[in-house]
Design a protein around this nucleic acid. Structure first.
Lengths: 188, 188, 188, 188
DNA sequence: TACTAAACGAGACGGTACGTCGCGTCTTATT
DNA sequence: AATAAGACGCGACGTACCGTCTCGTTTAGTA
C-alpha cells in the first residue's frame, strides 16, 4: 500500500495540526483571527505546506468549521419525526451560536466572492449541508407530518435561515420555545 | 445656523458623491470592490474627507446600502395585512438578491466583529431594521391573522432569515409561490 | 513651490534612510544581507514605501552602491594625465575591494537577468559609469600619451576589467606597483 | 572494486544526467533557470540524489559550466606564442559570451559568498582556472615576448578581466582586432 | 472686501496579511 | 547502498488594502 490516508501519515498529521489550530483561532477571535501566519505559528506547520493542502485561508477555515460541525451535531433518533427535527434544530442552533459556529456567517459571505472557497464549501458540506436534516425530513414526510405546500428546500430555508439570521444580526440563539414554534412552522 | 446639512453644502456634496460611488462599486463587484481607494477614485472625494465622515470603510458601505434599501423597498398598502406582508417580503427578497443587496451578508458578518460598524448599523437601519415590517405586522395582529405562538421578533426571523439564507448559500431568491408559503408560516 | 526634492521632504528622508540602511547591510553581509525586510527593519521605512520608490531590492542596492561610489571616488587632478589615471584606478580599486564595492559583482550579475535593474543601472551609473574616467582619458589623449591602437572603450575595459576580475575571483586588490603596470598597458 | 567511477555506474549516470540537464538550463535561462527542481525535472534524477553528489545548486552549476568549458576551449598550438595566446583569448571570449559562459559571472559572484562553492570552484577550475593559459604563457616567457614588469598573475588579470567585464556590463564580446590589442598589452 | 476657519485634495507613510518561490532537509518506499 | 517521490520548514519575495499623517489649497461665511 503506497498511498495511505490514515492517521500517522505526515500529510494527515499536518492536516490535523492545521485544522486544530484553525479551530482554536476561530474560537478565540473569529474568522479574522484565523490568519495564515497565525495558523502557522499555532500549528507549527509551514505556510508552504498549508498552501499545498488548501488553496487559501478561507478553505482552511471551512475545513476547520466542517470538522467541528461534524463533531458537534450528531443526528438524533428520538422515535418521533417532530421530536427529531426539533432536537436537530436545537443542536445546530447551539453550534451556530458557539464561537466556531459564529464564524460561519463570515465564511459563507466571504466564500460568495471566492470561486475556490465556493467549490470547497460544496464538497465539504454538500451532503451534510443541511446537517443530516434530509433523513429526518424524509421520516416526517412518511409520517405525513409536513405541510403540503412546502418543498424540502423551502422547509430547510425556513428552519435554518432564522438560525443564521439571529447569528448575523448579533442576537441570542433561539430558546427552546422558539425552536418549537419554528419547527411548528413547517409541520402540519 | 452656520453649518447646514442640506444639499448644496460642501459636506453633503461629498457625502452624496461617496455614497453614490460606493453603491456603484457594491453593485459592480460586491463588498470586496468597495475599497477606500476605489471609492476615492470613483467619487473624487479624498480619503481624508471620507475618513472625516465615516470611521471605516464598512460604515461607508452600510450607508450606501441603507440608501439603496430606502429607495427600493417602499412599504406597500394593498388593504389586507396578508397581502401587504407578502408584497413586502417579495420586495425585500428582490432587493437582497440585487447586486447591492447581496453585499448585505458581507456587511453584516463583517460588522459582527467591528464595534463601530455595529453601532453604525444600529443607527442607520434601526427603525427600518425590519424594513417597515413592524407596521404591517401590527396591522396583521389587529386583524387576528397571526399565529398566537409567535412573538413579533421570531416572526420576523422566520420571514427574513430564509431570504438571507438563500442569498448566503448562493441560491436563487424565493419565487412568488415560495414567498406565499413563507408568509403562510407566520399567519394563521 | 509645491514639489520640492530637497532634504526635508518626507520622500527624501525615506529615500535617505533606505539608502543608508542598505549601504550598511551591504557592508556587513554583502548583497545577500540586503534583504527588503532587513532594510525595512534597519531603516524604519516600510516595505510599501520602499516598493513605491524602487521596483525591487536590486535597484535599492544599486542606489546604495552608487551613493557610496560617488562619495568615495572623487576625481583626482595631479597635473599629469598618467598620474591622474593611476590615482583614479587606485581609488576605484580600493572602492571595489571595500565591503560595499565587493557587492558590485553580485549586483552586476543579478542585474543581467532583470530588466528593471538593468535600466536602473543605466540611469544611475550611466555617465559616471567609468567613474569620471572619460575626462582623464581625454586629457591623456590630448597629451599624446595613449596607445594608438586602443579605443577609449577598450582602454576602459583593460583598466576596469582586471579590478572586477580580482574581486570576483576572490583575491586581493591590485597593489600600487600592479596598478602602475596596468596603467602602463594602455599608455605609450 | 565494487564502486567504480566509470561510465555505466549508476552514480556516473546520475551525474551525467544532472550535469547535462543543468547545462541545458543554464543555456536556456541562465543561472536563474538552473533551479534544483528544474534540474530534477529535466534530468529525472531526484533531489535526494543530487544533494548526495553536490552540496548545493551552485556547485552543480559549476560542474555544468566546467564541463562545457573543457569541451569548448581546447588549447591551441599554432607555433608562435603570441598567436597561441591570441587564439586562446578569442576562444575563451567566445565561450564567455555563449549562453552557458554568460552564467559564469553569476556563478563567480554567488560563489564569493558561499564557502562550499568557493572550494568547489577551486578544485574544478583550479589548474585549468586560467584555461590552460599557464602553458602558453610559459612559452611566451621563454621566447622573451612578455613585458618584464608583469607577473603571470597580473598578466592573466589583464587578459581575462576585460572579457568578464564586457560580459558583466552587458556588452558585445571583444572582436578580433580588440583581442589583438588586448594581447598586445601584455607582450613586448 | 478682506479675513479666517473649516473643509478638502493629493499623496506619502507604517502596518498587517496575503499567496508564491526556491532552497535544502527529511521520510518512506523501491530497486 | 543508491535511488525516487514528494512532504516539509524556512525565509524572502512583491502586492493589496487599511487607516493615519502632513501639507498646501479652496471655499464660505463673517468682520
Amino acid at each position: 500500500m503506497t498511498t495511505r490516508n490514515e492517521l500517522g501519515t505526515r500529510v494527515s498529521r499536518s492536516r490535523a495540526a492545521v485544522i486544530g489550530a484553525t479551530a482554536q483561532l476561530l474560537t478565540e477571535g473569529g474568522l479574522g483571527a484565523a490568519t495564515i501566519d497565525a495558523i502557522r505559528d499555532r500549528s507549527g506547520v509551514s505556510k508552504t505546506t498549508i498552501y499545498k493542502h488548501w488553496p487559501n485561508r478561507l478553505c482552511v477555515a471551512i475545513d476547520a468549521f466542517a470538522d467541528r460541525l461534524a463533531l458537534d451535531t450528531a443526528m438524533p433518533d428520538t422515535g418521533t419525526a417532530r421530536e427529531d427535527l426539533t432536537q436537530q434544530i436545537r443542536t445546530v442552533s447551539a453550534f451556530y451560536s458557539s464561537p466556531v459556529g459564529s464564524a460561519f456567517a463570515g465564511i459563507l459571505s466571504q466564500a460568495a466572492q471566492d470561486e475556490d472557497a465556493r467549490a470547497w464549501l460544496e464538497t465539504r458540506l454538500a451532503d451534510s449541508r443541511q446537517h443530516g436534516i434530509h433523513v429526518l425530513w424524509q421520516r416526517a414526510v412518511l409520517h405525513g407530518e409536513v405541510r403540503s405546500d412546502l418543498t424540502a428546500d423551502l422547509a430547510f430555508d425556513i428552519l435554518f435561515g432564522p438560525l443564521m439570521w439571529r447569528l448575523v444580526t448579533g442576537r441570542q440563539a433561539l430558546d427552546d420555545g422558539e425552536v418549537d414554534a419554528l419547527v411548528a412552522s413547517v409541520l402540519v
